[in-house]
């Protein structure tokens, strides 16, 4: 379980995060939903400590993280798998070496062949078997994303953070990746945070959703509650997705009809 408390971050005179608090539960895929530029990536980086929040604190399973001793922070970080929005593959290494890298650094007692088995297993899970010897510069954006995911899940992490895992992917692969993330989360009972602005992901894997708007947490709930929200900004977000809009309209129509029926009965 990851708890964040009252996180504030300002760049220059731009307030990016304005007092965000919340809890990300273990064994669930926690989504950070929000429009472009609302500070989702910054929040994720504050959580893992790549950006130091001005105020606020983060705890990982009860261990205080922000501003704690470097030893303790590094100890926690060794349990983190992270996919960056830009993939951040090591561009001097092949795909195989990229995925093998965290294994080499974090589990030194693994043998070379065990590592390779694990690399191949992870590449297979993201649908990239056989791409071992390619360089990152030879990959498409979506393939880079998938290698990034393979690298994040290669060591058995306790915390998995994915910044827009399925942006730039076709709907079918996006769905596969979403499912993979959910599977891993439940299989290994880890704490997963996924940054997204994709409503399909929300419906597919959103066990718990935090909606950010201009650096503030506006709404929090499950995918089942999201249709019932009366937050205007979130509704706009939902209406931008056609299928959800139609679903919501049906719901609203049913609600209207229901109300009408009730009032008719009263008469």
């Amino acid at each position: 379980m990851i708890e964040i408390h009252n996180i504030h971050k300002t760049f220059g005179d731009k307030k990016v995060l304005d007092g965000v608090s919340g809890v990300f539960e273990t064994g669930k895929t926690n989504l950070l939903l929000g429009a472009s530029g609302t500070g989702k990536s910054v929040l994720l980086k504050c959580i893992v400590g790549l950006i130091k929040p001005d105020i606020g604190s983060v705890t990982f399973d009860g261990t205080y993280f922000t501003n704690n001793k470097l030893d303790i922070r590094q100890e926690i970080r060794r349990k983190i798998g992270m996919l960056f929005q830009s993939s951040a593959l090591f561009d001097s290494m092949t795909v195989e070496k990229n995925v093998e890298f965290p294994l080499k650094m974090l589990t030194p007692d693994m043998s070379k062949s065990e590592r390779l088995d694990r690399v191949n297993f992870c590449l297979k899970r993201v649908g990239l078997e056989g791409a071992n010897k390619k360089m990152p510069s030879e990959l498409s954006g979506g393939m880079k994303k998938r290698v990034g995911i393979a690298r994040a899940i290669a060591p058995n992490c306790t915390y998995l953070f994915c910044d827009e895992p399925n942006s730039g992917l076709d709907p079918l692969t996006a769905l596969k990746i979403d499912k993979l993330i959910k599977e891993i989360t439940e299989e290994y009972n880890i704490t997963t945070i996924v940054v997204t602005h994709d409503m399909n992901s929300v419906i597919e894997i959103g066990d718990k959703i935090m909606f950010l708007y201009e650096g503030k947490k506006l709404w929090e709930g499950t995918r089942d509650d999201i249709m019932d929200t009366d937050i205007h900004e979130l509704n706009e977000f939902i209406f931008a997705n056609r299928l959800m809009r139609d679903a919501k309209k049906v719901e609203e129509r049913e609600e209207l009809e229901e109300n009408e029926r009730k009032s008719n009965q009263l008469k």
Partner: peptide, 9 residues
């Protein structure tokens, strides 16, 4: 890429 290294501890 530097951030990626840092996140791995």
């Amino acid at each position: 890429q530097v951030d990626a290294l840092e996140v791995m501890g």
